[in-house]
Design a protein around this nucleic acid. Structure first.
Lengths: 125, 125
DNA sequence: TCAGGTACCCACCTGAAGGTAAGTAGGCAT
DNA sequence: ATGCCTACTTACCTTCAGGTGGGTACCTGA
């Protein structure tokens, strides 16, 4: 299920780590929060072109439950909620970081496209 | 699809790397091949308790297509096929390695079980 | 002669991941 | 008074990853 993952039994540490980043947007959310430090819900949504509100919330909730993300609610109108990485989120992101260069190199090899602002605009409409 | 993944457009390198390891057993296959260097189909199947033959083949084929795995066929009877990591597979595994300690730490935190030989035997039957 | 081992292929099915589109609350600007 | 902004929630629907259970070819040993 997406709402509550397996939480083991795991074959090894990598297996356990992959479990919490399994989800179409989780790595991107991690990355986005790492880059900006703190982001509001709407900022995240706009920063991840193509994501649906449902999936974004679902993923954020799971990541909060997994202790990766901190959620700060400001009781205002209009509502304001800020998301940021916890200590565990930061360390996971650091562990994930090595995949970046590898993936970039792979994109170069196979000539894969990158999601551009244009694509983003297209997707969003 | 499982048979031919998205191959972009990607948001970033991590996204591209995650794409090739997306699949229930891919990380484990990578790890298994890393540990043993070379493994036959049946050895892999027995080494990953719970995997179905269909998924194992499907994943191996995709990983071969992605240039992570090398497939060596020996024209004998009974058939013999050996799998091993390519250069790209090795480097990906190295990039993935950092996730190991993180996941192990997480397993300790949440008290997750590890797949044991007993579980393996149970699953296999 | 018949089960057993190898490395597969194929068709069918289910469950869950993710998408779509609507609704909610309260205040603000037009 | 109507619509817009926020951050959601809910219901419904589609898609597809993965599981199940069969079949294949060929040889070996009992």
């Amino acid at each position: 299920m997406a709402t509550s993952a397996r939480r083991g039994p795991y074959f090894c540490g990598i297996d356990a780590a992959m479990d919490v980043v399994a989800g179409k947007w989780k790595c991107l959310i991690l990355w986005e929060l790492h880059n900006y430090g703190t982001r509001r819900f709407g900022e995240l949504r706009r920063g991840l072109p193509g994501v649906s509100e449902k999936m974004l919330i679902q993923h954020l909730r799971e990541m909060e439950e997994d202790g990766l993300v901190h959620r700060e609610v400001y009781r205002e109108v209009p509502p304001k909620v800020e998301y940021s990485l916890t200590e565990h989120g930061v360390s996971l992101n650091a562990a994930l970081a090595l995949l970046g260069p590898w993936g970039t190199e792979r994109m170069r090899r196979i000539g894969a496209e990158k999601v551009s602002v244009d694509v983003a605009a297209t997707v969003r409409r």
